[in-house]
């Protein structure tokens, strides 16, 4: 087990981010600083989110699914969207194309999320002697999360940065973005409300991420067309 397993899990968790950066034109256009800025925005957003959680949420005695609390949590979760908005529109980026900008922001965002939320448990847990599938599944979850984040950033750039988009598509864009933003609440509901097993939740996330990526890609290329 031990270090080898930790290495495997870490590769599965963080590898896709690196691969994404290296394999796509992001690495050629020097979008690294954009990624870093997005990561910083993510960290600040998370801090604000934690402050909100601490202020508004009650600590529940039991681990059940409490609807009002979850709704509140979901609402606070929408701060992520605000953070993304800030990262996409307000932070000054070097002149890179919009296509690369949203990818870099999504990538930095997802990477910061993976490091903050998964690295420590991974180190503590996967290096332990006991074998569980938990950390491999978490690695897969991190992959799904990357896809979600990039998709959300793509839709965000459509919403906030692109002016001339087909009016018919606007509702679809907003609905898709809403689904993506609500994804943490949805998985939380599946896990706690419906008491799904972790593998089932992860497979749901993976298939949902593929579906949302496809939808986002269609929307994105549909908006691209009139510009061409």
């Amino acid at each position: 087990m031990t270090f080898f397993h930790f290495f495997n899990c870490a590769a599965l968790t963080f590898g896709p981010h690196a691969v994404y950066y290296k394999a796509t034109p992001l690495s050629e256009y020097d979008t690294f600083s954009t990624c870093i800025k997005a990561a910083i925005v993510y960290i600040v957003t998370t801090l604000i989110k934690f402050v909100c959680f601490a202020t508004f949420l009650q600590v529940s005695e039991h681990d059940g699914f409490d609807l009002s609390q979850e709704i509140l949590k979901g609402l606070i979760g929408f701060l992520d969207v605000a953070g993304l908005y800030y990262a996409l529109t307000q932070v000054s980026h070097r002149s890179i194309s919009q296509n690369h900008k949203f990818q870099a922001v999504g990538l930095g965002w997802a990477f910061a999320d993976a490091v903050l939320h998964r690295l420590a448990p991974l180190w503590v847990g996967a290096k332990g002697l006991e074998f569980t599938w938990e950390y491999l599944l978490q690695g897969l979850e991190s992959n799904a999360n990357l896809v979600f984040t990039v998709s959300l950033a793509a839709l965000g750039s459509l919403m906030w940065l692109r002016k001339n988009k087909p009016a018919a598509l606007v509702p679809f864009i907003y609905v898709s973005a809403g689904i993506l933003a609500a994804m943490p609440s949805i998985t939380s509901y599946l896990r706690k409300g419906l008491a799904w097993e972790f593998p089932r939740v992860v497979s749901f996330e993976l298939s949902a991420s593929l579906l949302m990526a496809f939808v986002t890609w269609r929307l994105f290329s549909a908006c691209q067309r009139p510009a061409q």
């Binding site: 397993h5 290495f7 590769a11 599965l12 590898g15 691969v19």
Partner: peptide, 19 residues
Amino acid sequence: DFIVALAVGSYLIILFVVL
């Protein structure tokens, strides 16, 4: 562990090529 390493490695390579 070796099998997992192989699986993860090939996944990353395939991802790279596809991207």
